[in-house]
Amino acid sequence: MADSIIELKNVSTVYEGERVPAIRDIDLTIESGEFVAIIGPNGAGKTTLLETINGLLPHTRGQVRVLGQDVARFGTQLRSQIGYVPQEFQFDETTPVLVRDVVLMGRYGRIGLFRRPTAEDYAQVQEALELLGLAELAERPLGKLSGGQQQKVLLARALAKEPKILLLDEPFSHLDCAAREEVAELITRWHRERSLTVLLVLHDLEAIPQSCHRVVLLNGGRIRHDGARERVVRAFTLAHRE
């Protein structure tokens, strides 16, 4: 039996200044190497769930364990092993950073305090840039790129980290059809070749990659369905029809 890499027990997360939890009573176990899609309508709590898992949002109840460690205590160290591509990002034209630096920054947590990036770090950055077709843009300012290119840069940043877990929040939202297929293929290949655990938040059911066999349906901050792709997608479609 595979090891649990992510474990949430009775977890609720309330935003600062709010009274109603954005996610509530979540019990979820993800095994190492799984590829899971999280679907649900707007405001279902999908982003909150991802950011509770990597500890960017502190949970208010329950227990979150990732890679066998308590996220509340070891969040910073754990995040250096978790790749995350956020849904919302906005970099204005004057943002003082080059594409290569953004990708390299993904590795800063791994590199640690008082250490400089090594040749291996730069090699990983180059590989990630090439995988996403960004090598020619490496010395461009991030703010000068299109939304789709910026999203690819954030994905390259997450991959350059050589993560054990990849959390992707609507990673295709700024991409055109061709780029979407390319990126989906890349994620699938990384999942397969590197036994990477992937959690993918999507609202477009058509965009769920074929290799993703498990789907979790969130609604109103609770898990409504969790199981085989076809069954959960059917339940979601039926619920929306009613």
């Binding site: 995040r79 250096s80 630096d101 920054m105 940043r157």
Partner: peptide, 23 residues
């Protein structure tokens, strides 16, 4: 000079800096 990486991450985007494991 000592904490250039950490400051660079912080000045780029605080949330993304936290995400990459920089306190």
């Amino acid at each position: 000079w000592l904490f250039f990486k950490e400051f660079q991450a912080l000045l780029f985007d605080r949330k993304l800096a936290e995400e990459s494991g920089v306190p």
